[in-house]
Computed example of a mutant assay.
Amino acid sequence: MPDSGEEMLFPSWPQHGEEERTGLLRALAQEGWWRNGGSEVENFEREFAGHHGAPYALATTNGTHALELALEVMGVRAGDEVVVPAFTFISSSLAVQRLGAVPVPADVRPDTYCLDTESAAALVTPRTRAIMPVHMAGQFADMDALEKLSVDTGVPLLQDAAHAHGAQWQGRRVGELGSIAAFSFQNGKLMTAGEGGALLLPDEESHREAYLRHCCGRPPGDRLYAHLTQGSNYRMNEFSASVLRAQLGRLEGQLEVREQRWAHLREALAAIGGVVPQGRDERGTLHAHYMAMVRLPGITAQRRLALVDGLVERGVPAFVGFPPVYRTEGFRHGPVPGGTEELAAHCPVAEEIGGDCVWLHHRVLLADVPVLDRLAEVFAGLVRAL
Rank of each mutant, 00 (worst) to 15 (best):
P105R: 02
W13E: 01
A345L: 13
E377H: 11
V257K: 06
A226Y: 14
P14D: 03
E7L: 14
H287E: 02
A130T: 06
M8P: 09
G310R: 01
D281H: 06
V383F: 03
G221A: 07
G221Y: 09
G17S: 11
F44M: 15
M74I: 13
E195Y: 12
G273Q: 09
G38A: 12
F89S: 13
V378E: 04
E252P: 12
R98Q: 05
A270P: 03
Y326G: 13
N187F: 10
R98W: 07
Q254D: 11
E256Y: 08
E342F: 10
H214T: 07
R363A: 09
G100P: 13
V73G: 05
D144Y: 08
H163V: 01
V134Q: 01
V96L: 11
L265R: 05
V358P: 00
W33H: 10
T285P: 10
L343F: 04
L69Q: 10
L158M: 11
V312D: 06
L255F: 00
G334C: 10
H287G: 02
E252M: 11
V378C: 11
R21K: 12
V276F: 00
R304L: 03
I272S: 00
V257P: 06
M1H: 11
L94W: 03
V312E: 04
R250H: 07
G166M: 02
E329Y: 15
G310V: 01
A246C: 12
R303E: 05
F44P: 03
A367D: 04
